[in-house]
Every structure is written in C-alpha cells, then in structure tokens.
C-alpha cells in the first residue's frame, strides 16, 4: 500500500473553546496506480484529509503510513514525502512566480538539489506531459491563458516525480473544453506513468467520467468508498449531504419511473446512450 490512513482524527484549534473535529476516525488504503475521486460539500473535511497525505497537517489521533512507515515518526524524511506525494492546490496558477514558464517548473527539482541536466530534463518532461509546447517555455507565465497557467502549475509538481498526485479542484473556473483538456491530460499521464491520482472535485460528471473509485466525505467521515456506479446509486443520500449524482443518473432514473427498462446505474453519457439504444432496438427502431 502506497499510503495507509489508520484511524486518523484531526481537531482544529485543539484545546481551545472553538475546537472542532475536522476529521473523525478516517481509515483509507491508497494503492499505486489508481484514479480516485474525492467528493464532499465545502467543509466536509476533504481538503484537510488531503493535507494530511503529504504531511502538511499532522493527525491529532491515529497514523498515516507511507510505504509502511509512519510519516509522523521523528526520523521520517518529510521532504522526501512531499516530493513523492505531490499536492496541487486550488487555483495553482496564483503560485506561479518565476520569470518564464521553464524556470517556474525547474523550481521544485532545483530545491531537491539535483544536477542541472536532471533538473532541466525533468522540467521538459513534465511540461511535455501536460501538453505545453516548447515555444511557450520562454514565455512569462502571465502571458498564458487560464488553462495553460494551470497546466504549468501542475507540471511544477510533476517535475518532482511524485508517485501520488493530489489535485484539488484542478478544473474550477475553466471553460468546458479547458476542463476536458486538463482531465484528458491527467488520464494520459496515468496511462504513461501509472501514477496514483486523487482528484478532488465538485463536478459529479467529471468524477463519473474519469475515476475508478470515489471517496465521499461528510462531516469529517468517509460516507462511501466504492466504484462510481455503486456510489452514485445512493444519489438520494448524496443529495442529503449537499452532493448529487451525475445528471445522466437522474435521467435514467426518470426513464425507469416512466416504465422503461433502462440501466439506472449508467453514470456517463456513453453508458446511458448505449442502454437507450438497446431499448430502441428492442422495439425495432
């Protein structure tokens, strides 16, 4: 197991009158080579949990193990952990600061104290993975579009060559094509490198389309942890906690209620279209 979260709880403002539990007895296994979606309403604890995974926050109770070793242990190398578990925050383009795109992506590996050739090799590779062409390397980050800036910021984390990549709402504020481009790039990246990706998202449609497993957070606890179809079958319960199913799931359920034998487990357009084509061909249309 790449990461193991073992009965972790976290208290904000521990010992203070306003102290509250942001995480409550979380247990999770995060293996290598998996695409995981993390959903939950604002304040459900998902960002707090993500910040535990690379040691930015330390559990009040419980332990987190990276490759079997407790990351809170005194002799544990946290700097190594942060290069292995890469965290891309929301609106990461606000963190671009170098004079050109290439220098910005070099910043991380440079801090690892690597030789110059390796730094530049990694930066070039990372930029290639996110689809930023060579002509843009010498441009100022501020000359890029929103989607491009975001991809450069992601490249900055990839250049650290993480084994686990955590993306906190990487598509917020992007136009529909920009969203698709980023998510397709991530899918492509996973095919090439078998990196584990945790995608925190408010878009149920994106999660349904891309991930293999969904973790649903609510009030600091894990509500569901399963494959997308199984999670979205609980759409009524998800609504209770401020979430929803992909719109396709609602359409299929409405069709079912109208008396049609359709697959209510469909969560993507392709699956829904496939199920409906079968219904139509059964009546000879």
């Amino acid at each position: 197991m790449a990461l193991k979260v073992d009965h972790v709880s976290y208290l904000y403002e521990e010992g203070m009158p306003l102290s509250r539990k942001a995480l409550d007895d979380i247990c999770l296994d995060i293996p290598q080579d998996q695409f995981i979606g993390v959903i939950g309403h604002t304040g459900s604890g998902k960002s707090t949990l993500m910040q535990h995974l690379n040691g930015l926050l330390t559990p009040t109770e419980g332990h987190i193990y990276y490759m079997g070793r407790d990351i809170s242990a005194k002799d544990f190398d946290r700097k190594m952990l942060r290069s292995k578990v890469g965290l891309v925050f929301q609106y990461p383009e606000h963190q671009l600061f170098e004079t050109d795109v290439f220098a910005d992506v070099c910043f991380g590996p440079k801090n690892l104290g690597l030789p110059k050739e390796e730094i530049e090799g990694r930066a070039g590779e990372a930029l290639e993975k996110v689809g930023i062409p060579r002509e843009m390397y010498s441009m100022s980050p501020f000359e890029l579009s929103g989607g491009q800036k975001r991809r450069v910021a992601i490249a900055g984390v990839l250049a650290m060559q993480p084994e686990i990549l955590i993306l906190d709402e990487p598509t917020a504020g992007l136009d529909p094509r920009g969203r698709e481009e980023i998510l397709d790039q991530i899918r492509q990246l996973r095919r090439q490198t078998h990196i584990t990706v945790l995608l925190v998202s408010h878009s149920m449609e994106d999660v349904a389309e891309y991930v293999d497993r969904i973790i649903v957070m609510n009030q600091g606890r894990i509500m569901y942890d399963d494959v997308p179809k199984a999670v979205f079958a609980h759409y009524r319960e998800l609504e209770q906690v401020g979430l929803a199913a992909p719109q396709v799931t609602y359409i299929m359920n409405a069709l079912k209620e109208s008396g049609l034998e359709v697959d209510t487990q469909a969560t993507t357009i392709q699956e829904a279209a496939c199920s409906l084509r079968k219904v139509f061909s059964a009546v000879g249309r």
Partner: peptide, 20 residues
C-alpha cells in the same frame, strides 16, 4: 467554441446520431 451543452441535450444528440 470550447463550450458544451447540458448533459441531457448531449445524450439526446448522441441518440440522434445513431438514427433515433
């Protein structure tokens, strides 16, 4: 134009393409 349509519209469009 880098935009999209609502999912229900897209589903209907996909079905249209297969002759429904």
């Amino acid at each position: 134009l880098r935009l999209d349509v609502p999912q229900v519209t897209l589903l209907a469009y996909e079905l249209q393409k297969s002759g429904i």
